[in-house]
């Protein structure tokens, strides 16, 4: 499907991680954090590099909670773009995060799930974890974004 054929509330075919990784010049802060898209077993997911500039508590050291939120919000934005043709960066309406565990200075992963997609608004859930412990997330988030119609 061509992105110009997409209507409100319509999912396009998902674009590849390779395509997603060409969008960071449009999202400089995502690049500053060290976010990139990856693909495994047909799923799109995201990595936050273990950059010391992302630390919030140097004593542990632990990642800044706000950075984890910003990473998960970026993941939600890129996930929506991947399913909507990637022409526009969507607006975030609201974002809510629950911190379950302290996130250490190591690579962090995030996967998104599109919840309800209305004509204008999409609900996205995001799970973030470290190591191979996806069943023990460091944070869970949900957001509402405006579905980026080109019309």
């Amino acid at each position: 499907m061509n992105e110009s054929d997409l209507q409100g509330g319509q999912l396009g075919q998902r674009l590849s991680a390779e395509a997603v990784n060409t969008w960071f010049d449009r999202i400089p802060y995502g690049q500053l954090l060290g976010v990139k898209a990856l693909e495994a077993e047909q799923d799109l997911f995201f990595e936050l590099a273990a950059n010391s500039s992302n630390v919030g508590n140097p004593l542990l050291p632990a990642l800044h909670g706000g950075v984890i939120a910003a990473f998960m919000e970026t993941a939600a934005i890129l996930n929506v773009m991947a399913y909507s043709g990637g022409q526009r960066v969507p607006k975030v309406i609201d974002f809510s995060i629950d911190y379950l565990r302290s996130a250490r200075l190591q690579p962090t992963w995030a996967a998104c799930e599109l919840g309800r997609l209305g004509k204008r608004v999409v609900n996205v859930s995001v799970t973030a974890w470290q190591g191979d412990q996806k069943d023990q997330p460091v944070a869970l988030a949900r957001a509402h974004l405006v579905w980026p119609n080109d019309s």
Binding site: R26, I27, Y29, G30, A70, V89, F95, I97
Partner: peptide, 17 residues
């Protein structure tokens, strides 16, 4: 700290931090 270069808007994540 921009999250939308086309419109020159600050990334929501910066506001969250």
């Amino acid at each position: 700290f921009v999250g939308n270069a086309e419109k020159q808007l600050i990334h929501g994540g910066v506001l969250t931090v």
